[in-house]
Simulated scan of single mutants.
Amino acid sequence: MPRFFPALLMALAALLSAQPLLADNAFATPPKDPVILSISGNLACCPQGTAYFDLARLDAMPQTEVSTTTPWTEGSATYSGVRISALLNAMGAKGSTISATALNDYSISFGTAAAMQYPVILATRSNGQVMRVRDKGPIWIIYPLSEYPQLRKEEFHQTMVWQLKSLTISD
Score class of each variant (00 low, 15 high):
Met61Pro: 02
Ala23Ser: 10
Ala90Ile: 00
Gln19Pro: 00
Ala51Asn: 09
Leu37Gln: 08
Glu147Met: 08
Met61Asp: 04
Gly75Leu: 14
Gly92Val: 02
Ile142Glu: 03
Gly95Arg: 06
Thr97Ser: 14
Pro31Thr: 10
Met116Gln: 14
His157Tyr: 15
Gln150His: 05
Ser170His: 04
Leu43His: 02
Met91Lys: 00
Leu22Asn: 06
Lys32His: 05
Met1Ala: 13
Leu16Glu: 09
Leu43Ile: 07
Glu147Cys: 01
Pro2Arg: 13
Thr29Asn: 11
Leu43Arg: 02
Ala51Val: 11
Met10His: 05
Thr64Lys: 11
Ala44Asp: 13
Glu154Trp: 05
Leu164Ala: 08
Thr97Trp: 11
Asp135Glu: 15
Thr69Val: 10
Gly75Arg: 14
Ala123Gly: 12
Phe27His: 04
Leu122Arg: 04
Ala114Gly: 07
Ala123Trp: 06
Thr124Asn: 12
Asp171His: 12
Tyr79Lys: 09
Ser38Trp: 01
Ile169Arg: 00
Pro30Ile: 01
Ala114Glu: 15
Asp59Gly: 05
Lys153Leu: 15
Cys45Ala: 15
Lys136Tyr: 12
Leu145Trp: 11
Gly49Trp: 02
Gly111His: 03
Met131Tyr: 10
Ile121Arg: 05
Cys45Gly: 13
Ala90Tyr: 00
Ser146Asn: 13
Asn89Arg: 08
Asp135Thr: 11
Ser99Gln: 15
Ile36Asp: 09
Ser126Trp: 00
Leu88Glu: 02
Trp72Thr: 05
Arg57Ile: 08
Leu167Pro: 00
Arg83Thr: 15
Lys153Val: 06
Leu9Asn: 08
Trp72Arg: 07
Leu58Val: 07
Ile142Tyr: 03
Ala115Cys: 14
Asp59Tyr: 04
Arg57Lys: 13
Ile142Phe: 03
Gly137Pro: 07
Asp33Cys: 06
Ala11Met: 14
Thr69Phe: 15
Gln158Met: 13
Leu15Asn: 11
Arg134Glu: 12
Gln117Lys: 14
Met91Val: 02
Phe110Glu: 00
Thr101Val: 15
Tyr143Pro: 01
Ile121His: 07
Gly95Ser: 09
Ser126Met: 14
Leu103His: 11
Ser38Val: 05
Leu145Val: 03
Ala86Val: 07
Gln63Tyr: 08
Ile169Phe: 00
Pro2Cys: 07
Met1Arg: 10
Pro71Cys: 06
Ala102His: 04
Asn104Leu: 11
Ala7Lys: 13
Asp171Lys: 14
Asp105Trp: 06
Arg132Ala: 15
Glu155Lys: 09
Leu15Thr: 11
Gly49Pro: 04
Arg132Leu: 12
Trp72Pro: 04
Leu103Phe: 15
Cys45Leu: 00
Ile142Arg: 01
Thr97Arg: 13
Leu16Phe: 10
Pro144Gln: 13
Asp135Val: 04
Leu43Pro: 02
Phe27Cys: 07
Leu167Ile: 13
Thr168Ser: 07
Pro144Asp: 14
Val120Asp: 01
Thr159Asp: 02
Val66Arg: 03
Ser166His: 06
Ser17Pro: 01
Leu9Gln: 11
Pro144Asn: 15
Tyr143Gln: 02
Leu12Asp: 02
Lys136Ala: 14
Met131Glu: 03
Asp59Lys: 13
Leu167His: 03
Val133Met: 12
Ala77Thr: 04
Gly81Phe: 03
Pro20Lys: 02
Asp105Thr: 11
Phe156Val: 05
Ala77Ser: 14
